[in-house]
Amino acid sequence: MAGEAEHHALGVFECQLCALTAPYSYVGQKPPNTQSVVLLEESYVMKDPFSSDKATFLVLGSRCSLCSRLVCVGPECSLFYAKRFCLPCVRQHLSAFPQEIRQDVEKRTAPSKKISSQHRSQT
């Protein structure tokens, strides 16, 4: 299938914080097969594996604009506020961010682990 050929993995994305891995098929700001969406950062992208639509993509992660670490978009690892920041960097420069972000980061640290353990018990 031609469509699939376009999704050949370029490599395996691995988050440097949580070690999540997934094959990516595109790096950049204009994901393939879609015209009207642009990404605001250089992202590692794969075709959305949960969608039958070829055009649906999934952003896996990108580099932290401060420390250049490759991080996934998961809420435990990074956040986006005009740019990508890994959570360690955000915490380090917390004061540089607006109130809403600061609150959000504080909220994230505590319950995030609980969520993941809940997921685990569901299996």
Partner: peptide, 21 residues
């Protein structure tokens, strides 16, 4: 510099890493 040009006023839209034409 990376932190210098962050938007002053918070808007949830800044937290979205994509844009639609």
């Amino acid at each position: 510099p990376a932190l210098a040009d962050l938007p002053r006023a918070y808007d949830p839209r800044y937290r979205i890493n994509l844009s639609v034409l």
